[in-house]
């Protein structure tokens, strides 16, 4: 960890690291809040499909840049469009078409992923580059994206808090919310869109495959201590910040894949809490 802080303070080499840490800490706020909704509403597999579909957008953006000379369309923009599109598609199918939820989720999951890999290959990307999108790379968090990411983060956090009462209601009892005049479909779509944008924030750092870990695990960790959704949000923001910092701190000096390290820290924390919790329960039951 000392080595990490030394690298962070390095005036020249530390710039990428500092930037990645700023994005990660800011995104933790969106992840803590949206992750709480995802866990409470039990839509983590849906969020997984949205994350994986982003690769389709990344592939498309590469293809447009390399083969069609549309230089301004960055991979990040492609990912954002693809994630929002798949969020809308999944929401539409679940609300209006009578298809099984898990079937459509798997279909969108693999469509985005396969399309992305094909388009990346066609636009001449090397296997190493493809792997860094899938598994994340600290060097992918480019300086030009910083302001866009921070702006998106602000939008997600603001909307998620403004509509807190409505989101809690549709997580807890969607039918009752509808009976009380809440436009549940609008808020459902909005929630999925905010989940999609959140995923984009940390997609490059943690990787498409593992980004879902940071959405679900801090919230699941926090759920063990919280009695209300907003305390769960606050706790999971702190947990997410701790996980990304520790994950980066351990991985960067030793050149271990950062995304994998962050996800492993989050998973470890979650399992420790799970085990301690169940032991505590057993002890308190036997003492009665």
């Amino acid at each position: 960890m000392n080595e990490f802080f030394r690298l962070l303070n390095d005036p020249h080499g530390g710039i990428f690291l500092r930037q990645a840490l700023v994005v990660a800490l800011a995104a933790s706020v969106a992840f803590g809040i949206m992750g709480t909704y995802v866990v409470a509403k039990r839509i983590s597999s849906l969020a997984g499909a949205i994350a994986h579909s982003a690769l389709g957008g990344i592939g498309a953006a590469h293809y447009l840049q390399k083969k069609m000379d549309i230089a301004w369309f960055e991979p990040l923009h492609g990912a954002l469009v693809a994630a929002l599109l798949s969020a809308f598609l999944i929401g539409f199918v679940i609300l209006y078409a009578r298809e099984r939820e898990d079937t459509i989720i798997s279909a969108i999951w693999v469509t985005g992923m396969s399309l992305g890999l094909i388009l990346l290959k066609l636009s001449g990307a090397k296997s190493v580059d493809m792997m860094s999108y899938v598994l994340g790379d600290i060097l992918l968090v480019s300086p030009s994206d910083l302001w866009l990411l921070l702006a998106l983060d602000t939008v997600v956090v603001a909307l998620a808090l403004i509509y807190y009462s409505k989101f809690v209601a549709i997580c807890f009892d969607q039918e009752f919310a509808e009976l009380r005049g809440v436009h549940v479909r609008v808020y459902y779509f909005l929630m999925l869109a905010l989940v999609a944008i959140s995923i984009i924030l940390l997609m490059n750092l943690v990787g498409i495959v593992l980004v879902i870990a940071l959405l679900v695990l801090p919230a699941a960790f926090a759920a063990r201590f919280a009695n209300r959704l907003h305390t769960m949000m606050a706790l999971s923001i702190l947990a997410c910040m701790a996980f990304v910092t520790i994950g980066m701190g351990v991985s960067v000096p030793y050149d271990i894949p950062t995304g994998a390290c962050i996800a492993a820290v989050a998973a470890a924390a979650y399992f420790i809490v799970l085990v301690v919790d169940s032991i505590q329960r057993r002890v308190s039951r036997s003492s009665i």
Binding site: V168, F172, F176, R228, L229
Partner: peptide, 14 residues
């Protein structure tokens, strides 16, 4: 679901 009794009842005022 982590929610208090008061917050459940408040949903009647949505």
């Amino acid at each position: 679901f982590p929610i208090t009794v008061r917050d459940v009842v408040l949903m009647g005022k949505l």
